Amino acid sequence: MTDHNIIDIVVAELTKYPSVKFQKGKNDELKIYRNDEYGFDITLQTNVRENTLHFGSFHWHYENTEEEIDEMLSQLIFALVGLVRIQEFSKNSIAYKWTLQIKDSDGKWHDNGTMQTINLKFWTTPDISYLQNSILPESIVK
């Protein structure tokens, strides 16, 4: 599967849902917009060497292998239906840390990865919020 095919396949699926707002930029980038203030935008960037999937400020890199592309597309679907959320930490209204969490079949959330920037005010208590989409119905993954 080439990098252009990945974007085209995702766009073909998204067009089945008229309420989903998305924009195909260049041939190697697709942006899917959150549907409310509690969600996060999703950006898919494809490249010959690797692909990157952005969930708001969190991102993950995937190699261009069939297994990694399948994993990336699964994560994308999970993010669209709300089975993935971002735990966002902020201080003084400035976000500095994001943890990707995945919901299991029992409804429990599990951390899957964390990204952060340097926060020099480590002694203050962070505010924690959760960003989660519900752009597509969860029934599409069952």
Rank of each mutant, 00 (worst) to 15 (best):
T2I: 11
D3R: 15
H4D: 13
I6P: 05
I7H: 11
D8H: 13
D8L: 14
V10I: 15
V11E: 15
K16F: 09
K16Y: 11
K16E: 13
Y17K: 07
Y17Q: 10
V20H: 02
V20Q: 09
K21T: 14
F22R: 06
F22Q: 05
Q23F: 08
K24T: 15
G25E: 08
E29N: 08
I32W: 04
Y33D: 11
R34V: 03
R34I: 06
R34S: 10
N35S: 09
D36N: 15
E37C: 09
G39E: 08
G39V: 06
D41Q: 04
I42R: 03
T43E: 12
Q45P: 02
Q45H: 06
T46I: 08
N47A: 14
V48E: 15
V48T: 07
R49Q: 13
L53W: 06
L53D: 04
H54K: 09
G56N: 09
F58I: 10
F58K: 04
H59Q: 12
H59P: 10
H59E: 07
H61V: 09
H61R: 15
E63G: 15
E63W: 06
E63P: 10
E63D: 13
E63L: 12
N64K: 05
T65N: 07
T65I: 09
E68Y: 11
I69M: 15
L73C: 11
Q75A: 01
L76P: 03
L76S: 06
F78N: 11
A79H: 06
A79Y: 03
L80I: 14
V81L: 08
G82M: 06
R85A: 07
R85K: 09
I86V: 13
E88A: 13
S90D: 10
K91H: 01
K91S: 04
K91N: 06
K91Y: 02
S93W: 07
S93P: 08
I94S: 08
Y96C: 01
Y96G: 05
K97F: 07
T99M: 03
T99L: 05
Q101F: 10
I102P: 00
K103Q: 07
K103H: 04
K103Y: 02
D104C: 02
D104H: 01
D111V: 00
N112F: 02
G113T: 02
T114D: 02
I118L: 04
N119R: 03
K121D: 09
K121T: 02
W123M: 00
P126C: 01
D127L: 06
I128N: 00
Y130D: 05
L131K: 02
L131Q: 02
Q132N: 03
Q132S: 01
N133W: 00
S134Y: 03
L136D: 04
P137K: 01
P137I: 04
E138V: 08
S139Q: 05
S139N: 05
S139M: 01
K142E: 08
K142H: 06
